[in-house]
Nucleic acid binder design. Structure first.
Lengths: 249, 249
DNA sequence: CGGTATCCGCAAAGATACTG
DNA sequence: CAGTATCTTTGCGGATACCG
């Protein structure tokens, strides 16, 4: 990687790139993940390890050179690690390290904030099921899942995901689960409609837009696990949940 | 603070600018606030309304043209509003709108993640008290503040801030409060040392690095209100607190 | 498939000068 | 103080070529 040394960037910071040069946790975070594409790349890896090709497909417009450069920088920073899957797969994949997994609250917070702008429909926009899986995790209502233990198979637009709910935890990954309690097959539009309560499970099933194998009664319960629309605000805040709104003079 | 999830289709996407073109809440959020300097600008406004000059001083390296451009974009997006203070002040200030205040969880999450990199000391780095006030909000432990009602005056490196704790809420603003329960005068180094528990209140006071008027017994209690170091992780997560760690194949 | 390398055009960022 | 205007530099996007 070529590094153009200028006075402020000559320090041994993250990637030798343009730094804000501020002794501030927010600025420092952005020194690491503030560049274009970086947080979207992290989002891609939040559903599990991925190959270069799959990352490339999940980030339309990035270009192989830039993707390669970002991955190298993230690997250098310890946010992403590169691994070769054991035989017979043998493919090289990228995955989030523990440090990288720590970015999930950042991505979730961004998603919850950005959610309100999705009512704008922009013509050329692309839509991938994997992104929606991240959204489900960001809107998961742990309180509603207490005591639930279930494993779901979600087939959306031909892509397969597994979701496991245990206690108040939620796990999502690519690929089919073993022995699911419910298999939901549908398209993105209907899936979003279901979770956002603009399409009822009954209507979705009756119209054939969605189908359920092994446990149709689960669908209604499943849908209730996610906070969309007005309920989303209940999730906001984290540790600073109660410190909103500064004094204004 | 309540987040209005009303329809914002009338809102203008940052057009003409680079959009990711993805129908994803995270990508959409980054379309609005993903550009360089933008989230740091939001951070600056999180301690209250500011004039152009003060924003400029709080963002070393930005350049007036870029600051102006960012402010214009954020105003257009409804994240920041421009206002002229009533006489006799008459100065124009920028402040976060309700939409902009919704970004606080994002900034806090970034700060909590970036915090771990601050152990690297970079020579030329700048350090401003206002940034630290945001850090205090991001690390506030609401559980430890239950039942506390106090108003603090914090004088750090000549800058004055007010902090009010009521119930489990924390408010921070610029300027002196009326009738504070404690006034703490110190420098950044000592302040950070106190909050991070690397300097004891006793030592700080005895060495003269910090001084307290009106209620020295408050200092110890004050310091305990913030989660630094290992305790920081307890604050993580927000609504997705329990959904960390996806299934990995 | 899993990348690296290069080149080119354009947009964004940085630096600085200047004005109401 | 509150910005605009202008110029230079850097980063990004897109294409394409090439290699293990």
């Amino acid at each position: 990687m070529k590094i153009k040394l200028k006075d402020r960037t000559s320090q041994v910071l993250p990637q030798g790139r343009r730094s804000y040069g501020q002794r501030c946790a927010v600025a420092r975070a952005l020194d690491y993940v503030g560049e274009r594409w970086t947080l979207l790349l992290v989002r891609e890896l939040m559903v599990g390890p991925k190959r270069f090709k799959d990352l490339f497909d999940g980030l339309p417009g990035i270009g192989t050179n830039l993707l390669s450069e970002r991955l190298k920088g993230l690997e250098e920073a310890g946010i992403v690690s590169r691994r070769i899957l054991p035989p017979p797969a043998g493919s090289t994949v990228y995955e989030l390290t523990e440090l990288g997994l720590g970015l999930e609250p950042v991505v979730f917070a961004l998603g919850r904030w950005g959610h309100q702008f999705l009512s704008q429909h922009v013509p050329g926009e692309i839509w991938k099921p994997g992104w929606f899986m991240v959204a489900l995790r960001a809107t998961f209502r742990a309180d509603k899942a207490a005591g639930i233990r279930a494993r779901y198979e979600l087939r959306v637009d031909g892509e397969v995901f597994q979701m496991e709910i245990a206690g108040d935890k939620l796990r999502v990954a690519q690929g089919p689960p073993s022995d699911p309690d419910m298999t939901l097959t549908t398209d993105m539009r209907t899936f979003v409609g279901l979770v956002s309560s603009t399409v009822s499970p009954h209507d979705a099933l009756r119209s054939g837009k969605a189908s359920v194998q092994k446990g149709p009664q689960e669908l209604r319960r499943f849908v209730a696990l996610f906070a969309w629309g007005a309920r989303l605000q209940e999730l906001e805040g984290g540790g600073a949940r109660h410190s909103q709104g500064g004094v204004r003079r």
